[in-house]
Simulated scan of single mutants.
Amino acid sequence: MSNLKTIIPERAANIGNFMVGRLLPFREKRMVGPFAFIDHMGPVTMDETQNLDVPPHPHIGLSTLTYLFEGSIMHRDSLGSEVEITPGAVNWMTAGKGVVHSERTPESLRNSRKSLHGLQIWVALPKHLENMEPSFHHTEKQEIPSFEKDGVLIKVIAGEVFGKKSPVPVHSNLYFLELKSGKKRKVKLGDYLFGESGLYILEGNVFSEGNTYEPKQILAANDSTLCEFEMDHNTTVYIFGGEPFPEERHIHWNFVASEKETIEKAREDWKAQRFPKVPGETEFVPLPD
């Protein structure tokens, strides 16, 4: 496995009303490029009495990327944004110096059976932008560039690769790609990738250097320029990465920063409820011990 640096298995974590598989950070690999955190939500089915309800909670120093395969989430934030996230669309919220948001089942689905399945991702900000003004951007499914290469359907969900650029307004040199194949296909991406690179297997199998890798694993590459593997039939993978930052990032709860003092201040500000409020919401997630 000459080009595989780390194999990261999915681990269960509890958030809201259901379990998610937490993939990053991992003890042996804290970040991949600027990607600091990846959660696999679901798949979960909820009945008429069950709903996703994550009350207002804060973030600093990062951008959140929410990408759903099934279901819907109503996003509300302290900037006044109120958007229903649907499968294939991208929610990109940049926290900068501080933002608060809630994530809930939309009203239209709350009294019916529903499913939810997707990825929630944190992308750390470059040090000089950690204290930037917060912002929010929603990109509809049809705006995401997609094309076929060697029989594999590729979507450029965020960043720029293959001369294709996603409209998601990222703040550093990165990529987040979806690859889908109905048949066995060899994939060679090394000429297009850069920095650090990770591969998450959502469904199907990936073959590399005589080994078979199954869903719910992240494969972190030693060298993104050597990224070659074979996708089994009916396989979906996500490739993410980019240029790593020169400074370490500290992660505590929902806060990411290059300085521990910044995180401590955010903790105190949230405890004292000095963060901006989400319009129309009075609940909040308390600071964990």
Rank of each mutant, 00 (worst) to 15 (best):
E82T: 15
L153H: 14
V20E: 06
T45Y: 01
R185G: 05
I144F: 00
A257L: 02
Y213A: 04
H252T: 14
S197I: 04
P25S: 10
H40F: 03
M74D: 14
H117F: 12
K186R: 15
L189N: 01
R113F: 13
H171I: 02
S63I: 08
P43K: 05
V168P: 04
I157E: 02
P288R: 13
S2I: 10
E243C: 05
I218G: 01
K184M: 11
V170H: 03
T86P: 04
E28L: 10
N234W: 05
E259C: 03
N91F: 04
P58Y: 09
S258C: 09
H233C: 11
P106I: 08
S181N: 06
N222P: 01
F35Y: 13
P34I: 05
I251V: 13
L189P: 00
I60G: 02
Q50R: 13
R30H: 12
H57W: 11
E178G: 01
C227I: 08
A221N: 05
S102H: 08
Y175K: 08
P215M: 02
F207N: 06
L62H: 02
E259S: 12
P246N: 08
M93H: 06
N222L: 07
Q120R: 09
A220T: 10
Q120N: 09
E259W: 06
V99A: 12
K277V: 15
P276T: 09
E196M: 07
G210W: 07
A220R: 03
T139H: 02
Y192A: 12
E148M: 13
K265M: 11
Q120I: 02
M231R: 00
E248H: 09
G210C: 08
P34M: 05
E259T: 07
Q217L: 09
D223E: 13
S146E: 14
V170P: 00
N14W: 15
S146P: 02
S102I: 05
